[in-house]
Every structure is written in C-alpha cells, then in structure tokens.
Design a protein around this nucleic acid. Sequence first.
DNA 1: ATACCGATTAACT
DNA 2: GTTAATCGGTATA
Length: 189
Amino acid sequence: MRLDRSFYERTDVMGIARDLLGKVVHTRIDGAHVSGLITETEAYAGVDDRASHAFAGRRTERNASMYARGGTAYVYICYGIHHLFNIVTHSVGVPHAVLLRGVRILEGQAEADGRRGRPGARTDGPGTAAQALGIRRSHDGTDLLGRRIWVADEGLAIDPRSIAIGPRIGVDYAGPDAQLPYRFRIVRQ
DNA sequence: ATACCGATTAACT
DNA sequence: GTTAATCGGTATA
C-alpha cells in the first residue's frame, strides 16, 4: 500500500527515517518500472541541524524543495557528479528531509543494471541507489504521491534488532551535529 | 572575478 | 590507503 501524505507530514524526521527502512521505493522513469527495498536512510533535521542544507534557514535555488510539503522529492547533485535523492517531510516551510542511502533492487533489475553500467553493481550508497532508480536532478520537486516516484509499505516487517543506528556519513563539517545518531540501516536479514 | 569545499564513487597504489 | 571526476554554494575581493 502506497504511503500517503500523512506519513510524510509527520513532524519526527528521525522516526520517519527509521520507519522508511523495509519500505519499497518505486520509480516509473524513462518507461521502466524499478523498485527497491530501502535499507539505509539518514535524517536531516531542518534549520537547527548544522549538517542540513537548510541550516539556519538557508534557502537557495538548489534546496528550495526542502521547504515544500512532506512527500516531495529533493534531488541535488553532490560533488558535481552524483544525484542524491531525499524525501522531504513535515509541512510547507519546515525543511526536514530523509536521504535515501541504500536500496536492494526488487523489480526492474535489468533496467537498474543498465543504468549502473554493469550487472550486479552495488546500490548501497546514496549516489548508486538514486542512479539505479533513474532519479536525477530533473526529478527535484516531484510529488511522491504522483506516478513517477512513490514509496509503498508492502508488509515487510523489520526486526528492530536488525536496525543499526549511528552517526551520519560525510558530515564532519557539521561539528557536534556530526555525531547525532541520525543514520538508520538494516544490518541483518 | 577567483578560490575552496562538499549528505560520493570507482579506480587505482 | 589515495585520487580524479566535476559543479553549485559560499566566501572573499
């Protein structure tokens, strides 16, 4: 069952990041349907989070969609190369987001392989997951309740003991906030 | 205008 | 372990 607006409009971005583990992200892009089990996420907690692009209310052309309503895609280019897919949460004007950091492809493996360039290539990083799903900067601002990108609960139960929680990756610039336990991943099963 | 850095990855030594 | 790839944001002039 597809996640509805009320899931994304919740105010607890860390809880959403955790609850997205085991959900299934679907894309219908360039005529192909690809889906993947979400295995890793990170929460970015808006204006108070030094690791967030929206820290202190920063608002630029790049991060404008972080300020959209929950259930919107925020896609930006990192290191000039990688397209990183985020799920915006909370309400309009509150720039919370969850970074998709890893998936296990369930449907459309051949299409994902083609996009990644070789069969069986990894999809366990934020850049590789977005690439396999076909998500790119042009999908920034896409409504996750539309027909291009959506997330579904397909009844896969995740044992809480299989979830690891720890500091986020690559945010050393964020000072003390770099140590916050905002990274969630499935480590077993 | 110039300079530096980043929510990364793959291909090296 | 190191490094190249490559571009928007931010700071400085």
